[in-house]
Design a protein around this nucleic acid. Structure first.
Lengths: 159, 159
DNA sequence: CTAGAGATTCAAGTGCACTTGAAGTCAAGG
DNA sequence: CCTTGACTTCAAGTGCACTTGAATCTCTAG
């Protein structure tokens, strides 16, 4: 499988090489493959061989997880990449643009939590009139299934 | 158990009431109690009765989880509260000050990821010379078990 | 030729944070 | 009296993201 790559450097990576370059365990890589996030060809012996651009896919997965996406969500994003050719800058850019918004959203949530922390819990009254959580006469109870608006949705994005 | 609270309003909450006020399922509350994050007294019938300030503890737990702490970490923080009296503003403030730093840290990480996203993956080369991940001659391989410095630590804080 | 490193599959296990289900108890209302 | 609803315990199940273990196979170096 000689290509234009320098001598000794194949265009294909073994699972061990891919693991070393991405810092992701081989067991995890097999798991990703099983879930359809990455793909490999097989040698005659049945060993996996990954195309070089797979490192970028794995990098993307790792990034996405740090941001808070589930593997299923990551797969959904990766599935948007073109199948018929190796993804270009533009292809990747399209995905990541989408992301910046999600990250910013999450950052805003954290800012909100930081404030809520000071305003609600930090003050020692859980912001009685704003949150109504500690309201002794339960005016908040009328709002429905407990006052939730200071909580944010349960796991709306990442954990 | 009459206190200075208005008629019909007990100083103690049933698990159902606590669930309604915090928006946390009764099963979760029992789970928290089993793990020592909250505590209850029992009626003669064996039913749980929570002191009113427990709502604040639960609120704290919910907040902490949204920020990314594990229950074990939350417990460690709650254990810092005084046992011999109902926590005051100052008691809660001490905990949350500690936190603001963690939140800011996490925000910084997300900002870093957002940049890394553009600079590394977004550009379509995974930042060849910065990350060395895609370096065809493997200069990065010398760094040890794969280039990780663009990844951040695995789950250092939150998920 | 043989040892050892690295690959394979498949099933089962792990850790976290709960949820669900089964079987039972208890107090209040019709 | 009987039902209803809220509570109880305990065991087992869930979802996610993997990891671990066992048994086996393949490649490379000495």
């Amino acid at each position: 499988m000689a290509t234009t790559t320098p001598p000794g450097i194949s265009a294909w990576l073994t699972i061990g090489e891919l693991a070393k370059r991405t810092g992701v365990a081989t067991s995890a890589l097999r798991f990703y493959e099983e879930r359809g996030l990455i793909h490999s060809e097989r040698t005659s012996a049945g060993h996996r061989r990954y195309p070089r651009p797979t490192t970028r896919r794995v990098a993307f997965i790792t990034f996405a997880q740090r941001v808070g996406l589930t593997l299923e969500e990551v797969k959904a994003e990766l599935d948007l990449l073109p199948q018929h050719h190796v993804p270009t800058q533009d292809d990747w850019s399209r995905l990541t643009t989408h992301w910046q918004e999600r990250i910013e959203e999450r950052i805003r949530e954290l800012e909100r939590l930081k404030d809520g922390l000071t305003n609600c819990i930090g003050c020692g009254c859980l912001s009685l009139d704003r949150c109504k959580v500690m309201n002794p006469y339960d005016s908040a109870a009328k709002l429905g299934t407990g006052p939730r608006y200071w909580q944010g949705d349960p796991r709306p994005f990442g954990r």
